[in-house]
């Protein structure tokens, strides 16, 4: 089979001599110059814009990354906040106790300031500030619950 193909190839190669009589046709000089100029122009254009498939891939990757980032951020912002609380009941009771204490202290300070109790003007600012800090911490803890 292989020998048969080789023989046929040899015969056909010999027969191909017939085509030597085929008149040669050549492009005009102007045509060759035009083609060469077009090719050089195309190469220069390709250099200017970089390899097209690579540029396309870069654009696709950028768009995909932007979409992924936007979708990811939206999803994360919509996730319910996870509260890690070992014993919610006890925490709530602690908070309620702290709230009572803060409220009591606030009431005492206000009584002293405006209801004519034992009043020490030098300590008033610091005590109030400490009180508001405690209140702020209480609300933070409540918010965390």
């Amino acid at each position: 089979m292989k020998d048969g193909v080789s023989d046929l190839e040899r015969i056909v190669e010999q027969e191909m001599q017939l085509l030597r009589a085929l008149p040669a046709v050549t492009p005009s000089r102007a045509c060759v110059d035009r083609v060469a100029a077009a090719v050089v122009r195309e190469a220069a254009r390709a250099t200017g814009r970089g390899p097209r498939p690579l540029a396309r891939a870069r654009l696709a990757i950028s768009v995909a990354a932007a979409v992924f980032l936007a979708v990811g951020l939206t999803a994360v912002s919509r996730w319910p906040r996870v509260v890690t609380c070992a014993d919610p009941e006890a925490t709530l009771q602690d908070w309620a106790a702290a709230w009572d204490e803060s409220s009591g202290r606030l009431a005492r300070v206000l009584d002293r300031r405006w209801a004519g109790g034992e009043y020490e003007p030098t300590n008033e600012g610091a005590e109030l500030e400490e009180l508001f800090d405690d209140l702020q911490q209480s609300f933070d803890r409540l918010d965390a619950l």
Binding site: A24, V25, T26, P27, V32, V35, V39, V40, A43, A44
Partner: peptide, 24 residues
């Protein structure tokens, strides 16, 4: 490497044979 001289030579070297095929 998009060397204009090499591209021009490539066209000049092969254009007669490619043109012959395309013409026929």
């Amino acid at each position: 490497a998009r060397d204009p001289e090499a591209l021009t030579r490539l066209v000049e070297f092969y254009s007669a044979r490619v043109f012959g095929l395309l013409y026929r």
